[in-house]
């Protein structure tokens, strides 16, 4: 299908790029990306992917917009406090770009529904904030052979890595198991600079765009860390031996998804 004149104008800065061009833009328009979590990471990622013309964007989040979200979750507005985050995000994405079809999942994603959810997407973006969810996303993507971008942010630090089936370690290769509840601070307890979500979430969007268009090198086999205090990026080469991994290794011991218990403070803490 040929691009319309409006599309040529909208995506002109992509089309100009030798690496993207009309072909790459068409790939983006035909692509399906799922963003899990419409928060600090998911907000900028969703905005950039919608602006880039990713044809189908799924967004999953069970929560509603809270005043305390607005310091960093830039897809939501003050007027949308109390509204479902997925609806608020859909509104913003469609306002940016009517080319984009937004699928909303206002649901608690868990071991019973995640595999089915990710199955119809080409690339998954993990924008969740807790470790059980991050391991669930990882394991489901390994099982469904889906590429995904993992990311985390806390205080003045952020990091991300990309998993592509068969091309390098998964999140579990590196981190093995979720830490016990409260053993490691989450950004709710420790705080985070709002712009950190912008830095890391935008890098996740960049990984998705590069995966879809086939441009350049992804963060497969690497963990990219960012320290805003030192204003330094550090690209850590990850061990390439994945044979012993419990989920993506040669003899996986995890063959069914599990819902790990959530940190209790996350349930109690109320703003």
């Amino acid at each position: 299908m040929a691009l319309t004149d409006k599309q040529i104008e909208r995506y002109s800065r992509h089309i100009i790029l030798k690496e993207i061009g009309v072909k790459g833009q068409k790939k983006l328009l035909n692509a399906k990306v799922l963003i899990i979590g419409a928060g600090g990471l998911g907000s900028p990622a969703a905005l950039y992917l919608a602006a880039a013309g990713v044809g189908t964007i799924g967004i999953a989040d069970a929560d509603v917009v809270d005043l305390s979200n607005l310091q960093r979750q830039v897809i939501h507005t003050t007027a949308n406090i109390g509204k479902a985050k997925v609806e608020s995000a859909k509104e913003a994405m469609e306002a940016i770009n009517p080319d984009v079809k937004v699928n909303v999942y206002q649901t608690f994603v868990d071991s019973t529904n995640i595999r089915e959810l990710i199955r119809e997407y080409d690339f998954i973006l993990d924008g969740t904030d807790n470790f059980p969810a991050k391991f669930l996303v990882n394991d489901a993507c390994v099982m469904e052979k889906k590429p995904f971008s993992h990311a985390g942010i806390i205080r003045f630090k952020g990091q991300l890595m990309t998993y592509v089936p068969g091309q390098g370690p998964c999140y579990r290769c590196v981190f093995k198991n979720p830490p016990p509840a409260d053993a490691v601070p989450t950004c709710k307890q420790a705080g985070v600079v709002g712009a950190m979500g912008g830095v890391i979430g935008s890098l996740q969007a960049m990984e998705a765009i590069k995966y879809i268009t086939g441009v350049g090198e992804l963060l497969t086999g690497y963990l990219l860390t960012y320290d805003a205090i030192k204003q330094e990026f550090h690209k850590v080469k990850l061990p390439s031996n994945t044979h012993s991994c419990a989920v993506c290794g040669d003899n996986p011991t995890i063959t069914e998804l599990v819902d790990y218990a959530q940190p209790t403070c996350e349930l109690k803490q109320k703003h």
């Binding site: 419409a38 929560d63 059980p132 669930l136 985390g152 942010i153 950190m196 979500g197």
Partner: peptide, 9 residues
């Protein structure tokens, strides 16, 4: 490193 949205799972 956690971070992101907690409206999940």
């Amino acid at each position: 490193m956690g971070g992101g949205s907690h409206g999940f799972n």
